[in-house]
């Protein structure tokens, strides 16, 4: 999967604030992910993890703070162009059910990447091959298992050659036996040097793959560091309580 990752960049989230009305969901989030590194974000439900990812690719505009790629703020950029640089994978896959698997992947390549039909097909098939789904190009998403659908969603994002990848609980909707295949694809991508932010409840994955683990609680990153530090020497009582519950 090296081909897709040669252009990855560093990501910095600085003091990001966001409120939905009176609900202050992000209250000064900081997160640094060096080029090619993987940060896993853990924390209780409702702590603002999904919202944080959405402010990074500006599906939601932060009220305050900054998001930097390669040291440069992206808040002044065209959001549509930014989203082609920052791939995102969702818990519910969000594949387009009325299109074939292949067309799910080629749609953005053709409309946004301005590739011709044949070129887009070739890129998409190569990407599907990398996630082990070359044989499913002509299927509908609904004919695939959840794990296969999520791998298609990953292929769809990677086909655009993003510089950063965001994963929002990519395996939470999957049957247990399908989780491994998707985590495997993500681990390969991380090893290949993609800069990634992974919101996950898979502590084993965080321990093995993450360079940084960030614990989010009530809209802030309470603790962040290498996996050993966060998992073995948890300082904050709320982090200890969280780990007691999930481990």
């Amino acid at each position: 999967m090296t081909a897709a990752t040669t252009t990855s960049v560093s990501l910095d989230v600085r003091d990001v604030h966001l409120a939905f009305g009176p609900n202050r969901v992000l209250r000064g989030v900081d997160l640094s992910v060096p080029r090619g590194a993987t940060a896993c974000v853990i924390g209780p439900s409702g702590s603002g993890k999904s919202t944080l990812l959405r402010t990074i690719n500006r599906l939601i505009e932060p009220d305050r703070g900054d998001v930097l790629l390669d040291g440069r703020s992206v808040l002044g950029d065209d959001p549509d162009a930014l989203r082609q640089r920052v791939g995102m994978v969702f818990q519910q896959f969000n594949l387009f059910p009325h299109m074939s698997v292949l067309r799910n992947v080629t749609l953005a390549l053709r409309r946004l990447g301005k590739l011709g039909a044949d070129e887009a097909d070739a890129v998409a098939r190569a990407q599907l091959e990398l996630v082990g789904l070359a044989g499913k190009a002509n299927s509908r998403p609904s004919q695939l298992s959840g794990g296969q659908q999520q791998r298609v969603a990953i292929a769809r994002a990677l086909a655009l050659r993003p510089e950063v990848m965001l994963f929002d609980e990519a395996t939470s909707a999957l049957d247990p036996e399908l989780v491994k295949g998707v985590l495997g694809v993500m681990a390969d991508l991380s090893a290949a040097g993609m800069t990634m932010v992974v919101v996950t409840h898979e502590m084993g994955f965080a321990r093995q793959v993450a360079d940084t683990v960030a614990f989010m609680d009530r809209g802030v990153v309470l603790e962040a560091g290498p996996p050993e530090a966060v998992f073995e020497r948890a300082g904050h009582p709320r982090l200890r309580r969280f780990l007691d519950q999930v481990l």
Binding site: R83, N94, A108, A157
Partner: peptide, 15 residues
């Protein structure tokens, strides 16, 4: 979620 999926790929609202 379908709109969000498309926007996350870089499509404008209209597209």
């Amino acid at each position: 979620a379908q709109l969000e999926g498309a926007r996350a790929l870089g499509f404008s609202w209209a597209d």
